[in-house]
């Protein structure tokens, strides 16, 4: 399979990465190179093979449903580009 530059632009918008038309062109060629490489997998017969869900078979761990951590507002916000009154600040989302 291969992609065209409009698909690349669509995928970039899904991934929330701004790309210029020139970048989209270059990425199209690069992604097609990688896709051609992974197309080798078409040779493998995977009939009746289950997909891997965990590389090490383990049972999901359970624990008591109680609060074990929290109340660290200052630490949580310590790396925020913008914050105020215990909140992360972002551009207005709802009019």
């Amino acid at each position: 399979m291969s992609v065209d530059s409009s698909t690349v632009k669509h995928v970039a918008s899904l991934a929330r990465i701004a790309v210029t038309p020139e970048e989209a062109e270059r990425l199209t060629a690069e992604l097609n190179g990688i896709l051609a490489f992974v197309d080798e997998l078409d040779e493998v017969d995977v009939t009746d093979v289950p997909p891997m869900t965990a590389v090490v078979a383990t049972a999901m761990k359970m624990r008591e449903d109680r609060v074990t951590d929290g109340d660290r507002v200052d630490e949580v916000l310590s790396n925020a580009p913008e914050s105020e009154d215990g909140y992360f600040l972002v551009p207005k989302v709802v009019e």
């Binding site: 399979m1 992609v3 698909t7 690349v8 995928v11 970039a12 899904l14 991934a15 990465i17 790309v19 990425l27 690069e30 992604l31 990688i34 896709l35 992974v38 997998l41 493998v44 995977v46 093979v49 289950p50 997909p51 891997m52 869900t53 590389v55």
Partner: peptide
Amino acid sequence: KRRILLGTYVLSAGYYDAYYLKAQKVRT
């Protein structure tokens, strides 16, 4: 960026089975 875009593409609607699911079967 290249890797995020390719990863987003192989997980996107219509391509998940052909790429991601297949790769996880090969992994088995």
